[in-house]
């Protein structure tokens, strides 16, 4: 007889893939671009595959490319990438309950956490669904990076223009998913919409101020804490 998690894994797989496919497709151009740039910086296909699998961080990977080229040390790169990815601290903490119980799978699922997966997952998703969502996006990212490195060896240099914003569709998808998540969560308390609207506006103003003050890398933790305080005060 099938266990609960196996049943969820088998029955829901196609519907989860339908849910995750648009998001996974949206990140392909960004990962392709990373692969092309890494390939042009003389990274081998194995190195591009390894950074996609072990590093798995869009902004982090783009950030280490010039650092590696300029000969930065391990701790400099660690500091920069950990700062860029510090937004995952609260995200990892709040989604830990959804992860599979076995230690190995838990570590794997935790490592495969990304912005797109977080925005795609739902509170009621079980461990199998979470693992499938994260693995689909993770593998798409890693494979597209290697394809990009291959493409980079084939395309003429002038075809890869820095002025084309290949990441925009991925940002649109992330914005849509974030807004859908917010709508779902805030609709639960719609009878108190006016104070809540005021609280959300305050959170946005505070976050904007903190971005201006601390920059888009270091604003995350103080801004999330401030928003949590405001929303708790507004009795969300």
């Amino acid at each position: 007889m099938m266990q609960g998690s196996e049943l969820e894994w088998t029955q829901g797989r196609s519907s989860v893939w339908r849910r995750v496919a648009p998001t996974a497709l949206a990140i392909v151009p960004v990962s392709l671009l990373f692969g092309v740039l890494a390939g042009r910086s003389d990274w081998s296909l194995l190195e591009v595959a390894l950074i996609g699998v072990l590093g798995f961080s869009g902004s982090g990977q783009f950030a280490v490319l010039p650092l590696e080229q300029s000969g930065a040390g391990f701790f400099t790169m660690l500091l920069v990438t950990a700062s860029i990815n510090s937004r995952y601290l609260p995200i990892a903490f709040t989604t830990a309950g959804r992860l599979p119980r076995p230690w190995g799978r838990k570590v794997l699922a935790a490592h495969m956490l990304g912005d797109e997966a977080y925005a795609t997952e739902r509170d009621q998703d079980g461990p199998g669904t979470v693992l499938l969502i994260r693995a689909s996006i993770f593998l798409t990212w890693a494979v597209a990076g290697v394809l990009g490195a291959l493409l980079g060896q084939l395309l003429p240099a002038q075809w890869v223009g820095a002025e084309v914003n290949l990441g925009y569709p991925a940002s649109v998808v992330l914005m849509y998913l974030s807004m859908s998540q917010l709508r779902g969560r805030l609709l639960q308390v719609r009878q108190r919409w006016l104070p809540l609207l005021g609280a959300v506006t305050l959170c946005l103003l505070g976050a904007w101020g903190l971005i201006q003050w601390l920059g888009p890398v270091y604003f995350w933790i103080p801004s999330v804490l401030l928003a949590t305080l405001i929303l708790t005060w507004a009795k969300l």
Binding site: L174, M175, S178, L182, W208, P216, A227
Partner: peptide, 16 residues
């Protein structure tokens, strides 16, 4: 509360 706080910041970060 924390997930809502994260998503508000997330949306603003993407837009920014």
């Amino acid at each position: 509360v924390l997930p809502v706080a994260v998503f508000i910041n997330f949306a603003l970060y993407i837009a920014y």
